[in-house]
Design a binder for these strands. Structure first.
Lengths: 195, 195, 195, 195
DNA sequence: CGATAAACGAGACGGTACGTCTGGTCTTGTG
DNA sequence: CACAAGACCAGACGTACCGTCTCGTTTATCG
């Protein structure tokens, strides 16, 4: 009996992306986005949105996560360390665009909504972390990163600066910079004998 | 002529802290905080708040920054590296409390409000960064951190994981963890000969 | 779909009358009346009022016009001239009460709001004027008022003094006075031979 | 002991007229006029206005009454009836302009402010009424209006339609119309034998 | 094939807050 | 001591959304 309307579903996701996309005229922030407005643009009633999503954040995640993940793949054809460098660079360059604003606004929205945070971590963050960990593990197997280290701890150390810069806007997100971060993390901070 | 009422000023800051303080019964988030509510609790008219602060975020910053900064001082009596370790530990432990939630919510609020972000960086972040840089510089002079490195870059590397964990809630904020982060950053990720 | 709530509708009109009624404790003027206050007293949200009425004046008109009109009916059982005299007297006595203040305040409110004025004329004034014109026309048919005269012009002449006195408060609104006005209008100002 | 500043006094009256004058760019209504705004334009503090005038209406009356009265003088060189006709015509034509709006807005403002009403009647209305009565008395002496009639009652009958039309906006204010009103009042409404 | 139950659009509803405006009072210098 | 300057509390403005709640009206299965 009565089954979910695919047309409405799609209209909602499309309207959400359109509202958030600065190239579509609108380009509002996730904070300014409202269920009311999505419904209006999608030509759908509020009830329908509330029926299928618990919150605005959930709609946004549904709307863009899939496409986002696809955009920063892990390269399997390179040595682990090279793949790591490439992946960080791709991430940084992606985050330099509108998509970076979107991620930061999503994180922002989650700060006062625990279930949104869970949704976000499950749908977005775990995916990102797994990608990072898999590369790091490869680099460890290839002997470029010390194998005793916990890959998750390593991921924290080298990816955190990227998200930090995204959220605190302390400097431009560029590949040259992410390269420097990686180099610094690899060699460490202690003085070297050869210097 | 016509001079600012200190009583109102204080009432506003006090009301703000009270509303945000989970131990005072209220404990609402920065997002749920509203100028209207602050005015009501402070027994002050909205006009008075709008006259002196450009935004909710500015009020919050005024309300807690001073006390917050004082709570994580840089110890001058220890060697640089020890002071750094202590500072990171103190920061992490502070952020494990209600105050951490407050900082993360502040950062969240700034994601869709450029001028709030500027306010935040100027009043909060620069202060934090300067504290970090000064310790790092000391550790460099004492030979515990390679002197060629840019202290700001170093600060990024070792403080970013703290704020990352604060905002993404990927794990508990504990001194033991911040110690590990520091150790990892110091020795670097590359395999060591002595292992 | 989605139908107007009769309960809210009634609550709004009742609250409005109550606020304006000096016998209900409140007794504020139309000028001091505010949408906000009506909403509060009616236990209704402001949105609901704004949804159905364009302005405060419109609410007031809706609240009292019907009952007001009913209170000064045109008597069909009397000769035209007698009915006219009765009608003027009833009007004057009505306007001597709280209801007169209400009408004058309504007219006042319309002086700086064209659409309110239109609303007022359409809902209130035309009705009053039609009542007057119908009696005058009857008196003309019965030969008590010269049939060549434009009934609207006649209405202007004999009703204007009533509204004038209501608004300028130049004297008490009493039947004896309205009788004198009518007599004066009937005989005219020029000296009569028989005097 | 410091005496009233003539400069401020004049600045306030001038600013008021300027704000109300549609030819001076502003042209706002008496209702939209505010003490605050007068003070701003006059370069005077609010306190100063509140010190010398009890209300906005009082300022407006002070600002324009003198000049207004002068504009519709009673002609002494004509027979009473002619002077009456001229006076009514001049009044009507004056009220057809911006000044009419001003008078109607003043009356409006007085509807919910008793002391303003008293001020208005004393400063404005009595003056107008006296002018009317003096002409009517002259016409009575000259035998054109029945001498037994109370001149104030007569004034009510023939001037009321003018103010009525001004406030209810039931038709254009033109000399042709005021002539018709006067004629009607003179001959009366009852059928004439010569018709 | 017709009953039925869910999904749907429409949108009313009580709320909360927005940021601005004005009112009228009060306070603090300045000339 | 009149005045300017302007801070202050109070409260209304009209708008935007919130999340809940009827309403009929499709529409797709299931008996």
């Amino acid at each position: 009996m009565a089954v979910r309307s695919e047309a409405s579903h799609k209209a909602i996701l499309d309207a959400t992306m359109e509202l958030l996309d600065p190239d579509s005229g609108e380009g509002i922030s996730v904070q300014k986005l409202s269920i009311e407005r999505i419904a209006r643009v999608a030509g759908v009633s509020k009830t329908t949105i509330y029926r299928w999503w618990p919150s605005k954040v959930a709609v946004v995640i549904d709307s863009f996560v899939a496409s986002h993940i696809a955009r920063t793949p892990v390269r399997q054809d390179l040595p682990g360390l090279e793949a790591l460098r490439e992946h960080m660079g791709a991430l940084v360059e992606t985050y330099a665009t509108h998509e970076g604003r979107l991620v930061s606004q999503l994180v922002a929205e989650c700060q006062h909504d625990e279930s949104a945070m869970n949704e976000f971590k499950e749908r977005f963050w775990h995916n990102r972390r797994d990608a990072a960990v898999s590369i790091i593990r490869r680099a460890q197997e290839e002997g470029d990163i010390w194998s005793e280290l916990d890959p998750v701890g390593v991921a924290d150390l080298i990816y955190a600066p990227i998200y930090f810069r995204l959220l605190f806007q302390t400097g431009p997100l560029e590949k040259a910079w992410s390269d420097r971060v990686l180099d610094l993390a690899l060699t460490g901070l202690t003085p070297r004998e050869d210097a």
